[in-house]
Simulated assay, not measured.
Amino acid sequence: MDIDTFWDIVEACRRQARGRDGRLTWLCAELSRRPLTEIVGFQVCLDEVTYEASTRELWAAAERILGGRCSDDGFCYFGLWMVGLGREVFSRAVTRPDADPDALADAPEIQELAGRPRELWHDDWPDWESLDYVALEAYEIATGVDDDGDAFDDAVETERRDGNGTGGSGPLGGRRAVRDEGEVARTLPRLSVLFPVGCA
């Protein structure tokens, strides 16, 4: 699966279903109807784009949005959530040559969170951990075999070794502390206004 097909599926998912649970149901059904190589390719592409999102600048943006509370796992789930925002939002924040995580301030999903107490975000919390498991579920449906992901993981690893995978994991360039207020205000001016320090 190439990256354009991956994003076409993500965008179709956004159009077909509302809410994360509905989108996962649609996505699992869509993937499970495809050849196994495409299901595996979807996971490889997902890993690739979330790796691209592992930058210190985006980590600073995630911490600003989340109020300074963003663990390693939380940042991973935030990256998966960003995939769900679609290619345009993701590209503006991560992959364009002029990528700017502060561009997340334009995303309607981010604007809907701003000004609301975080304890009321509930289902709108910006993470989507379960997206990372949908290809495995589709693979098991397509094969009719539940093997705890061993065959799927092997297939994904083989695809990566063939030159279609990520070069590593974790934030590129190290983590940036969100509490360096001057630096954050300079690099993330709009997110800093939407999510000021101390907001609940």
Rank of each mutant, 00 (worst) to 15 (best):
F75Q: 00
F195R: 01
R92T: 02
G174A: 09
R69L: 13
Y51T: 05
V94Y: 08
L131M: 07
G86V: 07
V134H: 09
E57F: 00
D2F: 12
P171L: 11
R87Q: 11
A185I: 00
L136F: 06
T55S: 11
A177E: 13
C76H: 14
Q111K: 14
E11V: 11
R15P: 01
L172C: 10
G86Q: 02
D8Q: 13
A200M: 10
E30Y: 15
G84D: 03
L113C: 05
D127S: 13
M82R: 04
D72H: 14
C199S: 15
L36I: 15
I9K: 02
A61C: 03
L24Y: 12
D123P: 09
E137V: 04
P108A: 10
A12L: 12
I3R: 00
G22D: 02
L191M: 04
L120K: 04
R34Q: 10
E30M: 11
E30D: 14
Y133L: 13
E11F: 13
A138I: 01
G170F: 14
G67C: 03
A99S: 04
G68I: 02
T143V: 09
P101E: 01
Y133A: 13
V197Y: 10
G84L: 03
I141E: 06
L194R: 05
A93F: 12
D132A: 14
D102V: 00
D2V: 13
W125A: 08
S169A: 12
G68M: 07
W121R: 02
L120Q: 03
E48P: 02
E119Q: 14
I65E: 05
R14G: 00
A105Y: 06
D72M: 14
T95L: 06
I141N: 04
L24N: 11
E137Q: 13
D100V: 08
L120D: 07
V49T: 01
E30R: 15
S71L: 08
P35F: 06
D153L: 13
A99Q: 05
W128G: 04
D123A: 15
A99M: 02
A17W: 07
R34D: 00
R69W: 11
E63Q: 11
T50M: 08
D162Q: 14
D8F: 14
V10M: 01
V184S: 07
E159W: 05
T158F: 13
G163S: 02
M1H: 03
F90P: 03
C45N: 11
R14S: 06
